[in-house]
């Protein structure tokens, strides 16, 4: 049953709500309690929905829930204004996925829990 976890993570999955270290300015998603710089003084921060691909990998043997989407790319995206997210690349041909490519974050269905469970929505990115 994934309902409790999905529900708890809605702010970060739906709205990119993370946090930012007030001491060094580093941005985190998911939010952290302590910054690697040692500071525990962090403030809420909504990450930007624009960025560029920092790195990526192509998934050719995906987990069961994603098997009909193969092959697909998963990217680490550096967002404008700080922070990175790791997410699936959607609406994009694999040839277009390159380091440095501009992407926008989009709200999509990540997977559905079997035939009768809930639909889990969250963020992905696509080449602009």
């Amino acid at each position: 049953m994934i309902v409790p976890r999905h529900y708890k993570e809605m702010p970060q999955r739906y709205r990119l709500q993370g946090n930012r270290c007030k001491a060094c300015g580093k941005v985190f998603l998911p939010p952290r309690l302590v910054c690697p710089c040692g500071s525990e003084d962090l403030e809420d921060y909504s990450l930007s929905w624009k960025g560029k691909i920092l790195s990526y990998t192509i998934i050719r043997t995906p987990p069961t829930q994603f098997k009909y989407q193969k092959p697909y790319a998963v990217a680490i995206v550096e967002l404008e204004g700080g922070g990175t997210v790791q997410c699936q690349v959607t609406d994009t041909s694999l040839e277009e996925v390159e380091i440095g490519k501009e992407v926008e974050i989009v709200f999509r269905k990540i997977f559905s829990e079997g035939e009768a469970g809930i639909h889990c929505y969250g963020y992905k990115c696509r080449v602009v």
Partner: peptide, 16 residues
């Protein structure tokens, strides 16, 4: 619609 799109994601983007 892409496999990850439905009425909710379309409504979301239009609303945004």
């Amino acid at each position: 619609p892409n496999q990850d799109e439905d009425t909710v994601t379309i409504a979301y983007q239009a609303a945004k």
